[in-house]
Design a protein around this nucleic acid. Sequence first.
DNA 1: CGAAAAGTTGAACGATCGGTCAAGGTTTTT
DNA 2: AAAAACCTTGACCGATCGTTCAACTTTTCG
Lengths: 209, 209
Amino acid sequence: MNKPEPGIQMRQREETVRRIMEAAERVFADYGYAGASFSRIAAEAGLPKSNVVYYFETKEALYRRVVEDIFNVWRAAADNLSPEADPMTALSDYIDTKLELSRRRPFGSKVWANEIIQRAPIVHDYLEGELRRWTDDRIEVINGWIAAGQIRPISARHLLYAIWATTQHYADFTHQIKTLNDDADLSAAQWADTKSAVKDLLLRGVGAS
Amino acid sequence: MNKPEPGIQMRQREETVRRIMEAAERVFADYGYAGASFSRIAAEAGLPKSNVVYYFETKEALYRRVVEDIFNVWRAAADNLSPEADPMTALSDYIDTKLELSRRRPFGSKVWANEIIQRAPIVHDYLEGELRRWTDDRIEVINGWIAAGQIRPISARHLLYAIWATTQHYADFTHQIKTLNDDADLSAAQWADTKSAVKDLLLRGVGAS
DNA sequence: CGAAAAGTTGAACGATCGGTCAAGGTTTTT
DNA sequence: AAAAACCTTGACCGATCGTTCAACTTTTCG
């Protein structure tokens, strides 16, 4: 049962796969599923097209890997919204985490948005299963907070939707936000402003003082 | 200077153009710019491909017409946010109007979202000109309300972004929302709930009692 | 009415797409 | 060192793309 020490080939394989997936995430985000081509992804990754095909067989398989990857990151972030915590702290942390993801993985967010806009041909099963359960669970948690008088009696479902919408907006609509910011990327200070403004607005909405 | 009474041909032309643009809006929303093909749009409109080309010359020209059309609708809706009105009434009406647009023109919203996600190759000039001016004007209006003590001192810019994000979310992420609603479209009652929930959350955020 | 203009449509074009394949090189295993 | 497995890559395939074109019908207008 000894794990074999990775040889040159295996280490290079992982590195190559990672490079292709990063390129693919960018290209899928910038051109959509149909508009993204193997040749463009390969060029972005600095590899021949055939080599990309060798590692990912089909375009759909590569796309699926990219979508699953970003989804796993998001799922991990979602665990922050735990039932035990204080409502304001938990929601505040959740918004922070989601905004930080929008900042660090904007292409992943765009790929996800594209997938949903186009009726989720790939991740539909996940939406019906895992996401539905996760959402129902969190709605119960929030309703528990409401019943205990810890927050205002708002609609838990629409609160979640509002958090998703506002946080992901800063990734998906990066270009619009940048344009309205005199064509400059948001600075670190502006990102901090964003976080506090979003939290201020939404948390006040649930009853923060 | 007498306007000529429209003959059979001209009336049918307008009708055909409208039918093509409706089909195109759906297809561009469902498949993205690159994934939308003349043949699919033509099939959706019930016309031969060549006929669609006859009316719109190139795919980019057709796409541009679709984007400009939805943009004009949105611009008209934006006028609701006028400086003179009472803050809460004005913001409430604005949110109502935007949500009603998400309900009635979801495909247009998706086309717009796609365009922005993909760096606005078509509407970039508009973003830099008209939208930037409109946004700056509204930020001034909101800051005026704040200075007059009519609403809480929130960030006007991020308030606007939050309104855009939450309202458009119900159009762009229709599929996700529908899936989380047991695969059922939102009923009229659920749309009413949505409107009041979004307004409750955001308006409380700006200081409604 | 008859010529000009506008609308309709199937066939065909070069370009690009996703994917296949074979030939040759490199690494790992025996 | 020989065999096996793995990796790299350019050439190539059928399908589909946006676009062009020519033949034809219908509508408009003097």
